[in-house]
């Protein structure tokens, strides 16, 4: 922000204040029906802290937590709460690593990306990730899969 002139910063400050007020309004309005539920897939959320994750059991279908795409399992609520506060669940579900690899990612996020201390919940989070998103050995060049066959007419 230092690069911006003071008047612009003031303007942005005022803009932010309005956004805050809108945010409060939105929050208040929706509070009755869905208290701080998990945001819609991809919705920009406030990266302040873990999200509250009540009632996720009803959102699990065929072993997948539908709003996030996470595999249902022990530790799911912790992973939703901590991981999706800043980034999409998709960033987790598209990656694969062993326990050490996931721990490295958490350390990197804590060192450089403002991730908070996960405290005693870290072990449960690492259990969940390393069990459900472990590396799969595919060989040096896997066969083509999921081919969508179609008649080609030239």
């Amino acid at each position: 922000m230092q690069h911006l002139p003071t008047n612009l910063r003031l303007l942005m400050g005022a803009g932010l204040l309005i956004l805050v007020l809108i945010g409060i309004g939105v929050y208040f309005q929706t509070e009755q029906s869905e208290t701080d539920t998990i945001p819609k897939d991809g919705e920009i959320r406030n990266a302040v802290a873990p999200l509250q994750v009540d009632g996720i059991e009803s959102q699990v279908k065929n072993g997948i937590h539908e709003p996030t795409g996470f595999i249902a399992g022990e530790g799911l609520s912790l992973v939703i709460a901590h991981c999706t506060a800043c980034h999409s669940a998709k960033l987790v579900t598209q990656n694969r690593a062993d326990r050490e690899g996931w721990e490295k990612m958490i350390r990197w996020m804590q060192r450089t990306q403002n991730l908070w201390d996960l405290g005693e919940q870290e072990a449960a989070i690492l259990d969940y990730l390393s069990e459900n998103y472990a590396p799969v050995q595919t060989g040096r060049r896997p066969p083509l899969t999921n081919i969508d066959w179609y008649e080609l007419k030239e």
């Binding site: 932010l16 956004l19 805050v20 809108i22 945010g23 409060i24 939105v26 929050y27 945001p39 991809g42 919705e43 920009i44 406030n46 990266a47 302040v48 802290a49 873990p50 509250q52 994750v53 009540d54 609520s77 912790l78 709460a81 403002n114 908070w116 201390d117 996960l118 405290g119 005693e120 919940q121 449960a124």
Partner: peptide, 24 residues
């Protein structure tokens, strides 16, 4: 919802100054 699950105290180190932005 969570600490009860694990009986653990939640520890955060949260930088101050975050503000809610418009929802997309």
């Amino acid at each position: 919802s969570m600490a009860a699950l694990l009986g653990a105290e939640i520890v955060y180190a949260l930088p101050d100054g975050y503000t809610p932005l418009a929802l997309q």
